[in-house]
Computed example of a mutant assay.
Amino acid sequence: MNKTVLAFALAASSLVASPAMAANLLPDASQVQFTAIDAATRGTLLASTETGTTGATTYSGFLRSAVYLNTLGTLDFYYQVAINSINPGDEVFNLTASNFMGFTVDALVDGTDFDGAGIFTAANNPNLQGPAGSTTTASRNGSGSVVRADFGANGLEGAGQTSATYIFRTNATNYSLGGTFTTQDGSVAQRPNFQPIAAVPEPATWAMMLVGFGAIGASMRRRRRASAKAMQFA
């Protein structure tokens, strides 16, 4: 077996052995398929919140969000919508969340009651069990700040229906309560949510940066002195 064939065989075997990658959600992306989360990577719950649908005029229910530290060492942001009541003919057709600008985002989904007695519940939408299965896709706006789950045929239009839990996996390592979590139908309901924020250097990191800046400055001073001496003897 020559080296080319061996390299191809190794690459093929690694693809077979590797788990499916998450659906990467680039800025200005649309109709990206959500990937089922690998439960082994879920990690640890850091914070969660559940509020009523303040601002909605056609339905009532709950907006749920949470942030997890996954086993990769970065943060995942979770979102779910649950309907208590909704006007006949109306439908909740998407959810959006911000602010994700400057971060990588992967689109994951979980339809189970993964947190037991926690705020999230198993998806309870008849369309998810229908012939079409899940039709929900992920999108991200041009600046990258807003991510969205478009329910498609899985829109919520009946009392007691609950969306799957949509998860946006990022490379962030810090978060804050800010941005917005929004649902849309004929009206709009929104609330603050957990969002990724840029990491703040720890004191030790600041010290290392200052030492580095000092070394650069000393190096520049030495170069200037050497240049001055060279000019004197020229």
Rank of each mutant, 00 (worst) to 15 (best):
Met1Glu: 05
Asn2Ile: 01
Val5Met: 08
Val5Lys: 00
Ala7Phe: 13
Leu10Ala: 15
Ala11Trp: 02
Ser14Thr: 05
Leu15Arg: 11
Ala17Phe: 15
Ala17Ile: 04
Ala22Ser: 14
Ala23Val: 07
Leu25Thr: 08
Leu26Arg: 11
Pro27His: 13
Pro27Arg: 12
Asp28Ser: 15
Gln31Trp: 00
Ala36Cys: 01
Ala39Cys: 01
Ala40Thr: 11
Thr41Leu: 06
Thr41Cys: 01
Thr41His: 04
Gly43Met: 03
Ser48Ala: 15
Ser48Leu: 06
Gly52Cys: 03
Thr54Arg: 12
Thr57Asp: 06
Thr58Pro: 00
Tyr59Glu: 03
Tyr59Thr: 02
Tyr59Gly: 00
Phe62Asn: 07
Leu63Asp: 07
Leu63Lys: 01
Arg64Ala: 03
Val67Tyr: 05
Asn70Gln: 04
Thr71Arg: 07
Gly73Leu: 10
Thr74Gln: 03
Leu75Pro: 05
Leu75Ala: 11
Phe77Ser: 04
Ala82Thr: 04
Asn84Trp: 00
Asn84Arg: 08
Ser85Trp: 02
Asn87Ser: 15
Glu91Ile: 14
Phe93Arg: 03
Ala97Gln: 10
Ala97Lys: 12
Ala97Asp: 02
Ser98Ala: 10
Asn99Phe: 08
Thr104Lys: 12
Asp106Ile: 03
Asp110Thr: 06
Gly118Ala: 09
Ile119Asn: 08
Phe120Arg: 04
Thr121Ala: 14
Thr121Asn: 14
Thr121Tyr: 05
Leu128Pro: 02
Pro131Lys: 01
Ala132Phe: 03
Gly133Lys: 07
Ser134Pro: 09
Thr135His: 09
Thr137Met: 10
Gly142Asn: 11
Ser145His: 02
Asp150Ser: 12
Ala153Gly: 08
Leu156Gln: 01
Leu156Ile: 05
Glu157Lys: 12
Gly158Cys: 04
Ala159Asn: 13
Thr162His: 13
Thr165Arg: 03
Thr165Ala: 05
Tyr166Val: 10
Tyr166Cys: 12
Arg169Ile: 01
Thr170Cys: 05
Asn171Ile: 08
Ala172Asp: 01
Thr173Phe: 01
Asn174His: 12
Asn174Cys: 04
Tyr175Trp: 15
Tyr175Pro: 07
Leu177Phe: 08
Gly178Ser: 15
Gly179Cys: 08
Phe181Lys: 11
Asp185Tyr: 07
Gly186Asn: 14
Gly186Ala: 14
Val188Arg: 12
Ala189Lys: 00
Ala189Tyr: 06
Pro192Met: 10
Pro192His: 07
Pro192Tyr: 03
Pro192Asn: 09
Asn193Cys: 12
Asn193Ile: 03
Phe194Ser: 04
Val200Glu: 09
Val200Cys: 04
Pro201Asp: 07
Glu202Pro: 02
Glu202Gly: 06
Pro203Met: 10
Ala204Glu: 15
Thr205Arg: 03
Ala207Asn: 01
Met208Leu: 12
Leu210Arg: 14
Gly212Lys: 14
Ala215Asn: 10
Gly217Arg: 01
Ser219Trp: 14
Ser219Arg: 06
Ala226Asp: 13
Ser227Asp: 10
Ala228Ile: 05
Lys229Thr: 04
Ala234Pro: 00
